[in-house]
Each structure stands twice: as C-alpha cells, then as structure tokens.
Design a protein around this nucleic acid. Structure first.
Length: 506
RNA sequence: CGGAAUGUAGCUCAGCCUGGUAGAGCACUACGUUCGGGACGUAGGGGCCGGAGGUUCAAAUCCUCUCAUUCCGACCA
C-alpha cells in the first residue's frame, strides 16, 4: 500500500493524502487558497484543452471580462446579490501608506469593486451594448478565468476561496433557443465527464431552492464519490429574461418591437479534479484516466549498473520516440522519460501515487532483449501489476492499452454508481433509518453496506427542507428520466410525482 | 462567524503536567555495501519550539493576548 491513509479508514484524510502523495496541490500561505502543482494543474490543463475544443465546436468563442465588478453592477439583480453577498471579496482601497511602520490601506475607492464570484453581472452589461437587433443574436461566448468565493472551510480542489473555471454566457432571441442551449451545454458536460474523465453522471434539474441565484432553472450533472456522497460536477443555468431586464439587454425584433433577450450561463471548475481523485483514486494513490493524464506513459530507467547507464538512457530515449509516434484518441501519446537522479524504485512509487496510466521500467536486461517491464494497476489484477513486454509489441498495442484503461475506469465507476442508487426505500421511516448511517467507503464491487443515493419521490413542500437538513441530505437533482408515476414523498409521506435523487453532498 | 482541538526540523510527532544547553523516525547530503516492488551501514546538514507581551536568575514548558491550521456547525462550483 503506497498511502498512509486508506479510503475505508478515513475517507477525507485519504483524499488529502492522495493529493499530497501525488504532489498535485498544497495549501498556500494565503488563507483558503491552494497552490496547484504540475501534476494537478496538468490534469486541469487537459480538461481545459478538451472542453475548450467542445465549446468552440458548439459555436462559442472565447472572451475575457474583468476580474473586478463594480458593486452597483452586482446589485442590479436582487436574487443574484442575495445569493452571493455572504461570500464576496471586496476591494475598497487603491493604495497602501506607511503609518507607524505598518502599511495600511489608503485612498478609498468611490465605488467598491467586487472580485468576481461569477460574471453574469458584468457580462450582461457588455451584452446590453452588443445587442441591438435580432441580427446580433445569439451571442455565445465563454471565458476561462479564476473566481473568488469567500468560503469558510476550504478543501483542496473541492472548495477553495479562489478557483479556476470556465463560464459560458449566451444571449438568445427566444425562450426555446436559450433553453435548448442550456440543455445542450449540460450534455457537453456529461460527455466530458463520462467519456474523458470517466465519471458517470446523472443529468437533472435542481429543485427551486438549490437554483443558481437569479436563474429560472438550473441543470446539473451529479457524480457519486467512493464514499457514496454526491459531487455536483457541472451546472448549466437558464436565466430567462432576469439578467436581460436588470442589465437592459434589449433588441429590435423582425416586427420592429423591442424584446428582452434570454440568457444562459454554464460552468465547470477545478472541482472536477477533486471528482477524478474521489472516483478513481485507491489506497495506492490516484489513477488518472488516460485522456486527461498529463503523461500517459512514463518510462523509468533502471540505472543501477553505471557501466550500462548510457545504453539504458539511449534505449529509453529511442523507445520514447517510438511511443510518441503512436496516436491515441486523435493525439500523439504523451510519454516522458523520468531522467531525474533518483532511485528507480522511488520514481516507480512516485508515478504509482500520481496514477500515471502506464509505467515502463527499462534496464540493462531490457536493452539486451529489446523489452520492458510494464506496470499498470488498472488493468492488472496481480499483486505486482507487472508484466514483461516486448518493446515492439508494446508500441503496437499502447493505444489499445490506453483505450482499455479509459473504458475500464468508466465501467468500474458506472457499476459503483448503478449499484448504489437505492430505489427500495419506500417510507419516511425507512428513509430516516437509511440515512441514520454514516457514509463510508464503497468497495470495488460496491457491495459494502453504505449510504449513497436514494432515488424516490419528493413532494417539494417547504417543510421538507428542514427535515433534509436534519438528515444532512439534500435533493441533488430531479433526473431527466422521470417515471411519471405517483407515489409517497420519502420525507413526508404525502402524495408526490417528482422522482428525485436524495444524497449527502460535497 | 459559533463550538472543540492543535501549533516544536521539509514531513509525522515526543518533550510541557513538575521551568535549567533542542529530541526521535522519515526525508535530505557524502562515502561504502546493496540493487528489476519501498535495502543497509557510517558520518553529516537542518529548528531563536507560530507571533507579541508578561512572570522568573532562567521559558518550548507557567500566564495574557494574537495569528494560523484541523475537526464539528452555518455557507458552498
């Protein structure tokens, strides 16, 4: 076992342990903020690259809007400001002056600036200038940015005061087109999650009390972590005409009348990296799905015989070139030779903890035999995850191996999700009993008795909110695949038609 | 922002009760023996004990304040 903490022992501690052991990120001296290190950021960069292409393919273009938003802009949408008021970083001064040996803020701003927690307010203002005619619509933009929300309990990748994300913003001439855009982008997120991050998700709509502040409807994808808790992996908001009215995004229609536009916004964040860790990590460390792995193949040279070091390094470099010439999923295979002056075993364990999909050890014996030792714990059930391969054969099959790992990881996560959506909880009493238990780690087969997702009816009444709070659960979403049947609300026993997912959430 | 706990070497921690020259393991450096799943030996480097005050001949240790972290709440992509 490569980690000190295990999932079954203490899941939150294990999560921290994976991040430090894989050298992905650490807490910064700046309170509540994290330093993202190369392996952690490398994964985010892959996600960003893939999603950026998809955003462009679906007709959007990238823009950049200011980090600072004048307070008055933020105030225009009443619900919006209510929703975010408690977690705003506010810039109030423009200068520091030395007073009694200490630097103190000086020169107050006429109008305070909010550090963006999200950009609807400032982007809506731009839209109002850009949109005059129905011929200007739709406007479809996206920005990659950092945002700040003053969280009280930061957790690496899941909830930090500053985080990186992407926020798409669009404006449309009519309701149906804007709503279709909202749903379409949710599908793009689901595709990203499942087919690249290997995170199976449930698509649905948020109940009214969980909506984005200022939205008409919020849609989401929810993933299940290995402790049975839910992670919101992406959201897409249909904003109706709310922001158009507060920012005056109006256009002249074909008939000559003035209409307010319909707007949408949608985003995913570095939280996805947290989702990858909690879905694919094990007690050895992280496992990174090949499509988002910064390196898909890592070659570790065994340099114990100094006389043969040079030939091993030459061999490793040549093997790297052959592997890098192979195409996987439309891109060249990302391969690295770890040339650092460290013990081979140290390097091997480091890449194991980091979860590189394929690790190749090459030493003097391999040079002689034109081979390598392949290690990959996703594909191999042996205790050593070890297999001797011929170099040419590896090069010929590396693309297939990566495909198998990618698909295997998705299949494993999907089994876990499907096995742990409980549908046989029928009454409020059973619901109480079910969630009286603590969340614990779900084993590979998903058979461990645990607390995960309950799918059942919800009446939607106000008094259920307090009841859910007591159980520390929430309605994660109203899934798109509704049964249409009538039954009893699992909170109150009242007649209800909505099928919902109840769970504890991150 | 409420409740609790903890701050000593890069990391994990002992020492504190009962004040008297700063400790261990891991990690790091050098050399030697090892060597394809976490080797070992020897010798080293590294800390004004979170910070500021106070008590005292003397403070990591006692007192006060402060800052930070972790956990539990509230909040949350």
């Amino acid at each position: 076992m490569a980690l000190q903490k295990t999932r079954a022992g203490n899941y939150p501690e294990w999560f921290q342990n994976v991040i430090t052991a894989a050298d992905m990120a650490e807490l910064s001296a700046t309170p509540g903020c994290m330093v993202i290190k190369p392996w952690g950021l490398g994964i985010w960069e892959r996600i960003r690259f893939i999603l950026n292409e998809k955003i462009k393919e679906t007709g959007h273009e990238n823009c950049y809007f200011p980090l600072f938003i004048p307070l008055s802009f933020f105030q225009k949408e009443a619900e919006h400001v209510d929703g975010f008021a408690k977690e705003m970083a506010v810039v109030t001064h423009s200068r520091l002056t030395a007073k009694e040996g200490k630097l103190v803020p000086d020169n107050p701003l006429d109008e305070p600036l909010v550090v963006r927690p999200t950009s609807e307010a400032i982007i809506a203002d731009s839209f109002s200038k850009w949109v005059k005619s129905y011929r200007d619509l739709p406007v479809m933009v996206n920005q990659w940015a950092n945002v700040v929300r003053w969280e009280m309990r930061p957790r690496l990748f899941l909830r930090t005061r500053e985080f990186m994300w992407q926020e798409g913003h669009t404006a449309h001439a009519d309701y149906a087109e804007a709503e279709a855009e909202t749903i379409n982008m949710l599908s793009v997120y689901a595709d990203l999650a499942e087919n690249y991050l290997a995170l199976p998700v449930i698509k649905g709509r948020k109940p009214a009390h969980e909506k984005f502040p200022g939205a008409v409807d919020t849609y989401c994808i929810e993933a299940m972590m290995q402790d049975g808790r839910a992670l919101q992996a992406g959201t897409s908001h249909f904003l109706g005409q709310n922001f158009a009215k507060s920012a005056n995004i109006r256009f002249q229609n074909k008939e000559g009348g003035l209409d307010y536009a319909y707007t949408t916004s949608w985003g995913v964040s570095t939280r996805l990296v947290g989702g990858v860790i909690m879905t694919h990590g094990d007690d050895e460390g992280l496992c990174v799905p090949p499509k988002i792995a910064p390196y898909q193949v890592v070659i570790v040279p065994i340099l114990k015989d100094s006389l043969k070091s040079e030939s091993v390094m030459t061999y490793a470099a040549a093997l790297k070139e052959k592997i890098a010439a192979v195409t996987y999923d439309g891109e060249r295979v990302r391969v690295k030779v770890d040339t650092r002056l460290k013990d081979a075993t140290d390097k091997y364990w480091e890449w194991t903890r980091k979860g590189a999909p394929l690790i190749l050890e090459v030493g003097p014996r391999d040079v002689d035999k034109n081979g390598a030792v392949l290690r990959t714990r996703v594909l191999m059930n042996t205790p050593e995850w070890k297999q001797i391969v011929a170099a040419d054969e590896f090069v010929a099959t590396v693309s297939d191996l990566l495909t198998q790992i990618q698909e295997g990881m998705l299949a494993r996560a999907r089994v876990r999700l499907n096995k742990n959506i409980v549908t046989n909880v029928q009454t409020p009493e059973e619901m109480q009993a079910y969630f009286a238990n603590q969340n614990i780690f779900l084993d590979e087969a998903g058979n461990t008795p645990t607390v995960a997702f309950v799918r059942g009816k919800w009446c939607g009444d106000e008094d259920t909110l307090e009841m859910m709070k007591t159980l520390k659960i929430s309605v994660r979403c109203v899934p798109f695949d509704q049964s249409g049947t009538t039954g009893k609300c699992l909170m109150t026993g009242r007649e209800a038609t909505l099928d919902v997912i109840y769970a504890r959430a991150y």
